[in-house]
Nucleic acid binder design. Sequence first.
DNA 1: AGGTTTATCCTAGGATCCCTAGGAACGAAG
DNA 2: CTTCGTTCCTAGGGATCCTAGGATAAACCT
Lengths: 195, 195
Amino acid sequence: MARAGLTAEQVTIAGAELADQVGLDRVTMSQVARQLGVKDASLYSHVRGLEDLRGRIALLAADEKTIRIAEATAGLAGKDALVAFANAWREYAHRHPGRYTATQTPIEIDPELAAKALGPRRAVELTYGMLRGYGLAEPDLTDAVRLLRSTFHGFVALEAAGGFAHRRSPQQSWVRALDALHTLLEHWPPSVGDS
Amino acid sequence: MARAGLTAEQVTIAGAELADQVGLDRVTMSQVARQLGVKDASLYSHVRGLEDLRGRIALLAADEKTIRIAEATAGLAGKDALVAFANAWREYAHRHPGRYTATQTPIEIDPELAAKALGPRRAVELTYGMLRGYGLAEPDLTDAVRLLRSTFHGFVALEAAGGFAHRRSPQQSWVRALDALHTLLEHWPPSVGDS
DNA sequence: AGGTTTATCCTAGGATCCCTAGGAACGAAG
DNA sequence: CTTCGTTCCTAGGGATCCTAGGATAAACCT
């Protein structure tokens, strides 16, 4: 019998693919093991357990998503950058629903593992960089970043949950939302309810 | 032995409370049964199974959330209505994280059960009603509703997932986001990328 | 009240899953 | 070739979901 020669990454990738196919909550140690042609107990040499696997999938997805966004927004500024950023985000969520869900699930991730992942930090930089063209200063910048991320995530989450049952296509509303966010950023309101 | 005298609603409520305490994914038939002082097999007289229970929790939560929002926005208009709507939404998510998660999870719900639930329809009406003051017409209205719902949901979801690790308090960003959305609705942009 | 019916709750058990313990075999390193 | 570390295995405990079928409490009806 030749040995499978697995690594933690391969297990993670198998889990991520399974998550995209059948949903994150249906990713099971046994299923992943079967997929890899291995007994489930064997996975524990590479991964601490199901929790840990989920965390790894989340980190993998965060990295991948960040990379897609970085590629999509490279060299762009202003509205072009905003649209490219948002579309890359949404496209990743569509293409990899299971992975995307993993990024959103509040999981405790092994700290020493998270330290290695450059995804999150990179993502923050990217978002701030995208907003550079709009001339915002702190703390408005942070507020704007949070608003954008909220809208992007909320939209794709509702989309995935079937929250847009209406006739109008989500795509049209999406384009419109980006238009709206762009003009909003251009005329970022002065602190109205200055509490 | 006196009989427990359960109903589907009581099982659902027990499940919902458990979800708020330990997280939706940790809601198990056995746990709910233990909580109710009953063997797990007994629950299947009231609920089809775990899937079904989750669906019922989701519908319950949707109803509750809608009611809170309706109470909060009663008699209000314009920005007051917007802020009250959004705060009621966020507050419900904070108070009932498990229930709220259930509303977001893409679950297939028993159609005949969903037909009874007035939550979703009511919620749609409420949202459209809240926007009445801004003088938008279709299809802008639908786009605006989707944008708002996306932002609200996205914000609380990221908040729950620990996505706002920054120094600035989420509360401040939230207030700011509502200001921004308000001015956005007042100056809803003409269709820019009219594709 | 007594008997019938219905629904609730039970015991029993199969299938699946997570995870641990400890042993076997493969591959590399001396 | 021997030794050693790692990968993978078998075996098994504990938990879960769910079904089947039986007991029994409560409601209903004459």
